[in-house]
Structure formats: C-alpha cells, structure tokens
C-alpha cells in the first residue's frame, strides 16, 4: 500500500470548511506499519475521505495481510 494513490474525483466537500477535497499524501498506520498514501483531504482542516471501495477493498486486504504477519 506504500506510495499508492487512491485519489478520484468526489462530490464530497468538507462540511466544516466548505472546501473541495484535494489530493494529499497522508500517513495511515496499522499493526506498526506506516504507509504514505495519497487520499482526498480537506485542504483547510485535513479531514480525510476513505471511500467505501477503498475501506472494503485494498485497505481490508492490507489489514488482513498485516494481521497474519
């Protein structure tokens, strides 16, 4: 998952800041492994979007892989 980009055009806007989400590199972490991934993020407050297909797809796959390590 390291150095992967999961950005895609989205209709979601930040409800706090009323800003469009923009691609940004963030660190996500599980079981001591850190991954630098590109996600859609609010440029003002940093709120991150994890869409359903990512959570139940690649993210779940990596979670399970790490749990068996």
């Amino acid at each position: 998952m390291s150095n992967f980009s999961f950005i895609s055009a989205t209709g979601w806007r930040c409800g706090c800041c009323n800003k469009e989400l923009q691609p940004r590199k963030v660190n996500v972490e599980y079981m001591g492994s850190v991954f630098n991934v590109e996600l859609m993020v609010c440029p003002a407050c940093g709120m991150v979007l994890v869409p359903e297909d990512l959570a139940l797809g690649k993210m779940l796959e990596v979670e399970q892989l790490l749990e068996d390590k």
């Binding site: 959570a55 139940l56 990596v62």
Partner: peptide, 27 residues
Amino acid sequence: TYWVEYQPGKQGFIVHNAYSHRMILPG
C-alpha cells in the same frame, strides 16, 4: 473506524450506508 452516510429526517437520522476499517488515519 466507522463511516456512516446519513441525512437528517423527520423520524431521525436516515442511514444510507455504513462501513468500517481498522487502518488508523492521521489525527
């Protein structure tokens, strides 16, 4: 981490979708 897509309604919050992940996000 639980995600829920919802909207306010007359009887309560209408839940459209819910999913989760275990990866820890910044913050």
